[in-house]
Design a protein around this nucleic acid. Sequence first.
DNA 1: ACTTCACTGATAATCATTCTCAGAAAGGCA
DNA 2: TGCCTTTCTGAGAATGATTATCAGTGAAGT
Lengths: 110, 110
Amino acid sequence: MVEASDDHPSAAVIYDRVRQVLPGIGFATVYRNLSALVQAGKIREVRLGETSQYDRRVDRHDHVICGKCGRLADVEFPVPPGALAFAEEQSGFVITDHHVELYGLCPNCL
Amino acid sequence: MVEASDDHPSAAVIYDRVRQVLPGIGFATVYRNLSALVQAGKIREVRLGETSQYDRRVDRHDHVICGKCGRLADVEFPVPPGALAFAEEQSGFVITDHHVELYGLCPNCL
DNA sequence: ACTTCACTGATAATCATTCTCAGAAAGGCA
DNA sequence: TGCCTTTCTGAGAATGATTATCAGTGAAGT
């Protein structure tokens, strides 16, 4: 599998990369395989604006997004023990998962 | 302004609602006004999957999303004091804002 | 060799959103 | 009031990301 590199590429970027190895490939195939990988739990899809980015890490973690260049990086955001219970109480929802998005500027853009 | 009701409507829902009052309106106008309101800081845009939802609350807060019916509700998610600094240290980013998305089931769907 | 069947690439279709552009409405002013 | 300018609007086309369709290819089994 050519997918799941070490950054957070969008479908378009993955399509370009794959084409360097398999020049005749169509984007339908790329999208199909990405969906299959997501479904199979091999990669994770992260929506950023109107496009999807793909993350090889499938364990629970959070993301920082650079407001200038759009770069997305993994982070661990420590959640206090009672926070989820507090949010459940407030909302009446039963919470099964969560994702923190942090916004700022990346080292390169600073 | 007919926009900014008390739930989290998508552009399509807002378009339908506005059309009940102004039957001849086009969606271009609705989108234009929504963008203007967002730009002016009067409402907030929250992306949920492929569509945008609009939130009359513009202060910092978080959201719970029902995995079954897609309903979105406001919540306050308490962030521990050192968490942002910890994430900055990890990532090298300077963090200016954050947003927590909680996933689960809403009271109706339970 | 023959059938089956999953997989592929090209292309059309879809969905949300944005752009374009001619016309309408609103305001200013002599 | 009549004219000009500017802004706003609606209709529809255009865009960008993604998904569906569909005939063709190739491997696998018999």
